[in-house]
Design a protein around this nucleic acid. Structure first.
Lengths: 198, 198
DNA sequence: CGTCTATTTGAATGTACTCAAAAGCGGTGG
DNA sequence: CCACCGCTTTTGAGTACATTCAAATAGACG
């Protein structure tokens, strides 16, 4: 039971994140945790390179990851950030075992909990309610991206910037402006001008 | 069995769409089809109004729906089209029973098959593999929208237009230019200019 | 056939970009 | 611990892409 208490603190965020959607019992929770691996990703180091296959999904416990792509001109475009409590992966690569289109790297020293694809399959077979959890996770991601598309269609850069600050509270202080600009679809120069105006 | 043959033709598209991801047996298929309702949505009429709760998901058998929002100035922004073989809904509203942010209406006379939320719950309980189907559906939608965001960050209007034509083959001939422009995040005037150039 | 809406075309405007240079900041090594 | 180096951010000037407004033309539908 000492181990149990240790896990409760170590995995507090992760278990709370899951409990938000499904209620596994103690046995199911233990089984899930037995499949999970801890890892630290140093700032600026890469978790997933484009072209690789995304073998694990990562729950961010501390720190911040980002997912982005590089275009023909070498420009990076940030699709999403993953600070604490977010699940990071290249969905298409992870589920279809195709080479990843996106890269995922760390904007800060980041502690993650990993779940591999084979272990996820085991998990779905042993504890079917986890399939529900990941369905809901995919739906939430879908809703999030739909909002993002809507705002890119309907709103000017300045209002998208406000939405970014709401979506990721305090993250603005933690990451470089150029990453925020890239996420907003504007240049760092233009973001700097927007911020001066206020 | 005559009924069975009739269903095979009537539900051909729907069953093929499902068979792409899961393999329900005959009993499970029959149960699923017993929950499904057919409906026709006339061109320009509304399937879901913003503010309403999205009670059903709709599989498009023929025709085309679109999902869009109206901003403060009354401008419409098309997030997605749903021609044949697509599943249409306001995901956030359907799963959380919140008032819909989006509207869904018909760009052509459209025949859909509906599955209500309560019936979907029954379906998940009776035939768990359908929960897998809808997880995959959510994931595919997620991937699609992620591509959309990436292209809006990385590509100029002209190339996004090319992607639209690939994503929705032949749809260009079927729907108004202003709807395509809205989907691309440009004005109909500018789309007209792009098309002239070629 | 006539009306209403969509599309095209042109001109003027504005938003966001590129290029360039200066200033600020952070990390590293002496 | 401070100084230097490299990267990020700021600032300014000129530019380009996409917009608005307006008017003419074309298409769709009853």
């Amino acid at each position: 039971m000492l181990l149990h208490i240790a896990e409760l603190t170590m995995y507090k965020r992760l278990l709370h994140n899951i409990a938000y959607h499904i209620k596994p019992d103690q046995q199911e929770t233990d089984y899930f945790l037995s499949l999970v691996q801890q890892k630290t990703i140093k700032k600026n180091s890469v978790f997933l390179n484009s072209g690789e296959i995304c073998r694990s999904i990562a729950f961010v416990n501390t720190g911040c990851l980002r997912i982005f792509n590089r275009d023909e001109d070498g420009r990076e475009h940030n699709v999403s950030f993953f600070p604490e409590d977010w699940w990071a992966m290249d969905v298409a690569s992870f589920y279809s075992k195709k080479p990843a289109f996106y890269c995922i790297d760390a904007l800060e020293d980041t502690e993650v909990f990993l779940l591999s694809y084979p272990d996820m399959e085991k998990l779905f077979n042993h504890v079917p309610k986890f399939e529900r959890f990941f369905r809901i996770l995919a739906q939430n991601g879908f809703v999030l991206y739909q909002e993002r598309i809507t705002s890119s269609l309907a709103l000017p850069a300045e209002e998208r910037y406000e939405l970014f600050k709401k979506r990721y509270p305090k993250l603005e202080q933690r990451i470089a402006q150029k990453h925020i600009a890239s996420y907003l679809g504007i240049t760092p120069v233009f973001l700097s001008m927007l911020r001066r105006k206020r």
